[in-house]
Computed example of a mutant assay.
Amino acid sequence: MNNTANALLAVGASPIMAHAKSEIHDMVSIAHSVVINIGTLDEYWAESMIIAAKAAHSLKKPWILDPVGAGATGFRDEILHQLLPYRPTVIRGNASEIIALAKANTIVTKGVDSTAKSDEAINAAQYLVNQHDTIVCISGATDIILDRQQTSFIRNGHHLMTKVTGLGCSATALIGAFAGVTEKYFEATAAAMALMGIAGELAVLESKGPGSLQVNLLDKLYTITEEEFLSHLKYER
């Protein structure tokens, strides 16, 4: 959560992490967007998440779902089953999570790590798009973003990023930040994922390992220039 808040601050967003059921509706009403991440799940937080999704849907605020560990336990799957009817604007997860969320296949989810490649989840993602009228982002070595009209591929990032916990969560949060300032939600998703990948690539050049990467990535999210972004972008639509 701390890493995610720092990533949001680095790109100029204003994060708040709220969980108390008594204030969730008020928080959603003043936020530009909502991110629901089920990574640290318990019964109380789950109720708050459902309240938040319902409020975002009712108030027509964009909301982003990160189905961390989908398929790992029945409890996670049940909470996701309760969240999906509120039509998330964007769903971002790794291939295993997207497949499990769509119930398109039986696959093992190893915590927050993916046991499937992103291109193996395209059919599952398309099912979610059609079923819930959402945008789906499958993160991996290649990030794949789909809606009903188009598919985009982003080939930025570095394998060392998989050794730093919370970077997927940070990517989801960046999508939320970008979706909060434009109604072009597909483009917002692609831009956020590209920014995360490119910042990671550039930060790796200055890093000795995962520890320094974590710090250097935050710095690069803060200092990256338009020229750096455009010259490193690997995007196909």
Results as ranks from 00 to 15, higher is better:
108 V>Y: 01
192 A>Q: 00
227 E>W: 06
9 L>F: 11
155 R>A: 15
16 I>A: 14
44 Y>A: 15
26 D>G: 12
236 E>F: 10
150 Q>P: 05
137 C>R: 02
29 S>W: 06
142 T>D: 14
150 Q>W: 08
76 R>A: 04
57 H>V: 09
126 Q>N: 11
134 T>E: 09
77 D>T: 03
169 C>H: 00
97 E>D: 10
62 P>F: 08
56 A>M: 05
82 Q>C: 05
207 S>T: 10
237 R>W: 12
36 I>S: 00
202 L>V: 01
121 A>L: 01
127 Y>G: 08
208 K>M: 12
55 A>C: 10
201 E>R: 00
73 T>S: 15
195 L>W: 04
172 T>P: 11
164 V>E: 10
99 I>A: 06
142 T>F: 11
236 E>A: 06
138 I>D: 14
70 A>T: 02
90 V>W: 05
123 N>C: 12
191 A>C: 11
38 I>C: 10
232 H>C: 11
9 L>C: 07
133 D>W: 07
7 A>Y: 08
229 F>T: 01
41 L>W: 12
77 D>S: 02
216 N>A: 03
83 L>G: 00
64 I>W: 01
11 V>E: 14
203 A>P: 06
89 T>S: 15
217 L>P: 00
73 T>D: 13
211 G>C: 05
139 S>I: 07
65 L>P: 06
107 I>S: 09
133 D>S: 12
48 S>I: 10
115 T>E: 14
172 T>G: 15
46 A>N: 09
87 R>Y: 15
202 L>C: 01
159 H>L: 15
199 A>G: 07
143 D>M: 15
30 I>R: 14
220 K>D: 11
190 A>T: 12
155 R>G: 15
91 I>L: 06
162 T>S: 10
80 L>Q: 02
153 F>N: 03
58 S>A: 09
231 S>I: 09
25 H>G: 08
163 K>Q: 10
107 I>A: 08
216 N>G: 01
53 A>I: 06
44 Y>F: 15
85 P>R: 02
135 I>N: 08
121 A>N: 01
25 H>A: 15
193 M>W: 06
180 G>V: 02
49 M>P: 03
160 L>E: 04
